[in-house]
Computed example of a mutant assay.
Amino acid sequence: MELWVTEYQTPALGYSCKISETLRTEQTDFQHLSVVVTEQFGRMLLLDGMVQTTEKDEFVYHEMITRVALNTHPAPRRVLIIGGGDGGTLREVVRHPQVEEGVLVEIDDRVVQAARDFFPDLSCSFDEPKARVLIADGIQYIKDHKDSFDVIIVDSTEPVGPAVELFSAAFYQNCFQALKNDGILVVQSESPFFNADVIKMAYGGIKQHFPITKLYLANVPTYPSGLWSFTIGSKKYDPETLSCEDEGNARYYTSEVHRAAFKLPAFVRQIIEAGE
């Protein structure tokens, strides 16, 4: 018998991967968590049936959600990550030579434990000297830390369940206040093919508070449509102008990719114009 896992990306579209083993399935206090072994992408983490990360393509998402902001800011010494309990974003943050502290705030401790148990290439970041991992409500953490961070990265799930408020204009205002006077915010903002309303919500909400707001793209095979967006809000620095061209050991990110990611197709430009 063949076993397959399917993420229903829309009511009319599913994305299926053949699996060879189920490593974990549980209902946490916040969501349903599964870890499976797929033949195409290796180990895969799903939350509420939605693909969060896989061994084979995680590097694209994690490099692009981090390095664009980190190479825009001239001195990203303190970086806060909201969500991202798999550890991949934290891994990229603490690799950056100018980062002195990366703080990960994840609400669901079971996600962190699953990463430790099954994704060593991601969870290796948890024990780095520059890393702090806190199990807490990121929304409240942001409210409690004014003028504290150079960069804030919101590595959230889709806007359902506990992540809904992470896409609100009020949350982006709190992020603005938690950043220093030249700080940068970056959020994942979903697929322009399937989630135009999410892009409008994120882009419009961030633009209310940040003088520089831009959207950029990357290609992540296991995310809906494969084309993924990120929205960046900056108090001072233009994210299309690099302050640092650190590529480290990146597999997707380059300085050329950084600049090119902001060159948007016409239909994506129309989405963000509608959200302004």
Rank of each mutant, 00 (worst) to 15 (best):
C124W: 02
C124M: 11
C124A: 12
S125R: 00
F126N: 02
D127Q: 12
D127G: 12
E128V: 00
P129T: 02
P129A: 03
K130P: 01
K130L: 04
K130A: 07
A131T: 03
A131N: 04
R132G: 03
R132D: 01
V133E: 00
V133N: 02
L134R: 06
L134G: 01
L134A: 05
I135K: 01
A136Q: 05
A136E: 12
D137L: 04
D137R: 01
G138V: 03
G138F: 01
I139S: 05
I139W: 02
Q140H: 06
Q140W: 01
Q140I: 07
Q140D: 11
Y141L: 03
Y141H: 08
Y141E: 03
I142T: 14
I142L: 13
I142K: 00
K143P: 01
D144V: 04
D144W: 02
D144I: 01
H145L: 03
H145A: 04
H145R: 08
K146W: 05
K146G: 02
K146T: 06
K146D: 09
D147C: 08
D147A: 13
D147V: 07
S148P: 04
D150S: 06
D150W: 06
V151F: 06
V151S: 04
V151N: 05
I153Y: 05
I153E: 02
I153G: 01
I153N: 04
V154Y: 06
V154M: 07
D155L: 07
S156H: 06
S156E: 06
S156L: 09
T157C: 14
T157Q: 08
E158L: 09
E158D: 15
E158C: 08
P159T: 09
V160W: 06
V160F: 13
G161Q: 08
G161F: 10
G161Y: 11
G161T: 09
P162R: 13
P162I: 14
A163G: 11
A163R: 10
V164H: 10
V164T: 14
E165R: 15
L166F: 13
L166T: 14
F167Q: 09
F167M: 12
F167T: 10
S168A: 15
S168M: 12
S168L: 10
S168T: 14
A169Y: 06
A169S: 15
A169G: 08
A169D: 14
A170H: 14
A170L: 13
A170Y: 12
A170E: 15
F171S: 12
F171I: 12
F171W: 13
F171K: 10
F171Q: 09
Y172P: 10
Y172A: 09
Q173C: 11
Q173A: 15
C175N: 05
C175T: 06
F176W: 15
Q177P: 03
Q177A: 14
Q177Y: 14
Q177N: 15
Q177H: 15
A178Y: 08
A178C: 12
